[in-house]
Amino acid sequence: MSKRIDVKDLNVYYSKFLAVEDVNIEIEAKSVTAFIGPSGCGKSTFLRTLNRMHEVIPGGRVEGEVLLDGDNLYEPGVDPVTVRSQIGMVFQRPNPFPTMSIKDNVLAGVKLNGKKISRSDADSLVEKSLRGANLWNEVKDRLDKPGSGLSGGQQQRLCIARTIAVKPQVILMDEPCSALDPISTLAIEDLINELKSEFTVVIVTHNMQQAARVSDKTAFFNIAGTGKPGKLIEYADTATIFSNPSVKATEDYVSGRFG
């Protein structure tokens, strides 16, 4: 239930603007990979190319290959809908569907593409997913209430539950804790640790301690200046990146001497 991702010579554009240049990276299955780097270096942009969400933005396009267990996501004839059902995404701002109940939010992705699910299967999937997202105890008595009535941290875990309910191969998270308090953040970090037994997880974060706490490998992205493309500077085991990086810029960044 999880696959690896290999990225080869990837360039990412917004219309004419080259936002991310020449990324090569190999992400292991059942691991947590953190992307770090200064604001504007293209972490979100790159992350969104991993499940073809980048092209949702007008003018967004890529060159190069992203392989999911060897299958190129960008090969002609590949349906982005299929890609996204295998590679889920959690966004920076929690975004449960406001018009749906908590339960329907969890099932939203499961019922897509005309799939039917029996009531008892649905109930057990809802419970399993919410337990998986450490939210079950908090919401089990109000599954029919709107998802937008939860706290920010609960909403984010609801979004994670919704994502794991479709049983993806990979889960991408773009600063999933940046809108949350430290306690909700810890809850989500614990969750990420549990998720990696089943899923491949990629997380973008500005929080170095978080990267150090949750990830097995860390990728440092940087940008030479405004208007220049972002690049992958260094990619290694998290311990190496934080204690013994081989590039000066990485060391400056992780030790806070950036700028």
Binding site: N51, M53, V56, V81, T82, R84, S85, Q86, G88, M89, F91, R93, N95, P96, F97, P98, T99, M100, A108, G109, L112, N113, C159, R162, T163, V166
Partner: peptide, 27 residues
């Protein structure tokens, strides 16, 4: 319609029409 909600649907593997029924029309 907030982009956030449209992208929420798309990221779950919704087709464009499903995105419309899940995000745009309810909004």
């Amino acid at each position: 319609t907030p982009k956030l909600h449209e992208e929420a649907a798309l990221a779950l593997g919704a087709t464009r029409w499903e995105m419309i029924t899940m995000s745009v029309l309810p909004f």
